[in-house]
């Protein structure tokens, strides 16, 4: 069988990188289109959530999630299972998201920071809080502030934070996605969390 031949032959795969997704991808490479369907079904929600957090714009996020899968489809022949399939997929998606953010930097600056995100945020409630609701409101406010602060982080720091917190990637996988070393990944995250803690401290002190 082609896949087995590839696994044992020319590609010389190491067992630790050959995850189930990589296997599906190799099946797809060998012409099995249902393997691609399986990968789309498995990753469409997490990837769309990642794009939502990166871009905070649902229509663009939907479009770029599709584009990422389209690129996987078109470049299937060039796929080499030297890393996890998810790392490869998120690398494609990250490149798309960062390119989009770079190309639309001016438009984003013109948007008011107080405007709630079209993806996730509810506008702040105007009514005074009932007793016991105050803690909930504070948590909401914290969450809103953090979303805005994450959106204001430099692009690579933002990517690293989202991959770390929401896609549950380890430093190595984040580094592979961003094509940087593990130490550089840790430095990015350290700076990002320092900035976010500062924002949170300002919020607590302002109350």
């Amino acid at each position: 069988m082609v896949i087995e031949d590839r696994l044992t032959g020319r590609l010389k795969l190491s067992a630790d990188v050959l995850d189930a997704d990589a296997e599906q991808m190799l099946r797809f490479q060998a012409g099995d289109e249902t393997a691609f369907e399986i990968l789309v079904q498995r990753y469409r929600r997490p990837l769309s959530g990642y794009m939502d957090r990166m871009l905070q714009n649902s229509p663009v996020s939907d479009e770029l999630t599709q584009e990422a899968f389209l690129r996987v489809y078109l470049s299937r022949r060039r796929y080499r299972p030297t890393a996890r399939f998810s790392t490869w997929l998120y690398r494609i998606a990250t490149r798309l998201a960062l390119n989009y953010l770079r190309d639309h930097r001016h438009e984003r600056r013109q948007l008011s920071l107080d405007q709630p995100s079209p993806v996730t945020e509810r506008p702040p409630e105007a009514a005074s809080p009932a007793p016991g609701q105050e803690g909930e409101m504070l948590a909401d406010e914290r969450c809103r502030r953090i979303r805005r602060s994450v959106a204001a982080l430099p692009e690579r720091q933002r990517t690293a934070v989202i991959l770390h917190k929401y896609q549950e990637m380890d430093y190595r996988a984040i580094g592979e996605t961003l094509q940087i070393s593990v130490n550089a990944t840790k430095s990015l995250l350290f700076r990002a969390y320092e900035t976010l803690r500062r924002e949170l401290r300002d919020l607590e002190e302002a109350r």
Partner: peptide, 16 residues
């Protein structure tokens, strides 16, 4: 602050 930051992160849902 780090603990509260993690709480705030867990409140950022994008399930749509």
């Amino acid at each position: 602050l780090n603990r509260r930051l993690n709480e705030a992160f867990s409140g950022w849902e994008v399930e749509r």
